[in-house]
């Protein structure tokens, strides 16, 4: 079975701050990490490879330093990878990103299963996985929390829903996006670390994959980020008194009223 896992390098959002003047992310001194959801995608891919055999390749789009996330994936046990790095890819929205990734999947020789994290912690769109499936013309199941059966023709998966889960049969080739319930990422391995140290990450640009510069990056994007800002703290607050149990119930009522949470039936 050929498995391709898509990973994205993101700023470590636990420590990220906005510049109050320019409204852009302050990237200086902020470590770059593998998007945490992509670690679950990688773990899912490794488990699938253990079950079904075959090989696992990692695909990423980003600046040249994003080669680091592919090396990291090799530390965890990936067989190899491909980085899509080109000035032409810069400023891509999710639509233009899927154009590049779809070409990357083809450049890797295609896959039986493509696995993505459910979303990236920097953009939070959750669009790239499903969008990539559409570009590749293959079926997809989002929010997968576990595997039931695997064979060469199909994959039976559990799809996380608000009120439980669905069991879905996905004909292959197909794409899934995964949630954290799919399994705790394993530690990196010593052999993987040694291999990663020596591994030269292959890099391809738009022209290498026969892509027109107008299809990718900012030029190929339908959306643009005009401004990023931190919401103003309004300063309004309300103190809820009474016994802890009453105060707690009052908090729940307010959150339901504000539609922050929903109470299931």
């Amino acid at each position: 079975m050929k498995i391709i896992v898509c990973v994205k390098q993101v700023p470590d959002t636990a420590n990220v701050k906005l510049d109050p003047e320019t409204h852009t992310l302050k990237r200086e001194g902020v470590a770059s990490i593998i998007n945490p959801f992509d670690l679950f995608a990688l773990e899912a891919g490794l488990r699938l490879r253990e079950q079904a055999g075959g090989e696992l390749q990692v695909l990423s789009m980003g600046p040249p330093q994003a080669a680091e996330v592919i090396k990291q994936a090799i530390e965890f046990g990936a067989d190899g990878g491909l980085l899509l790095a080109d000035r032409a890819f810069a400023g891509a929205d999710t639509w233009a990103t899927t154009a590049a990734l779809a070409a990357g999947v083809k450049a890797l020789g295609g896959a039986d299963v493509v696995i993505c994290g459910k979303q990236a912690v920097d953009g939070d769109t959750a669009q790239v996985g499903p969008g990539l499936a559409m570009r590749l013309g293959i079926p997809q199941v989002a929010f997968v929390k576990g595997f039931r059966e695997v064979d060469g023709q199909s994959l039976v998966v559990e799809r996380q829903m608000d009120d439980g889960f669905d069991v879905v049969k996905l004909p292959l080739p197909g794409l899934i996006t995964v949630v954290r319930e799919v399994g705790e990422p394993r530690p990196p391995s010593l052999k993987g670390k040694m291999r990663a140290k020596k591994y030269q990450v292959p890099v391809k640009g738009a022209a290498d994959m026969g892509l027109d510069a107008a299809q990718v990056g900012l030029a190929g994007s339908y959306t643009q980020v005009v401004e990023v800002f931190a919401p103003q703290a309004s300063g309004e607050r309300e103190m809820l008194g009474g016994a802890p149990a009453e105060a707690g119930a009052a908090v729940i009522d307010r959150l339901v009223q504000a539609k922050v949470i929903m109470v299931g039936s």
């Binding site: 530690p187 391995s189 010593l190 993987g192």
Partner: peptide, 19 residues
């Protein structure tokens, strides 16, 4: 987890799958 990290291979000769 220690097995997945190859740590049980540390002192085993390479020809038997160790490090």
């Amino acid at each position: 987890a220690l097995a997945q990290a190859d740590l049980f291979g540390i002192i085993i000769p390479e020809e038997y799958g160790g490090l």
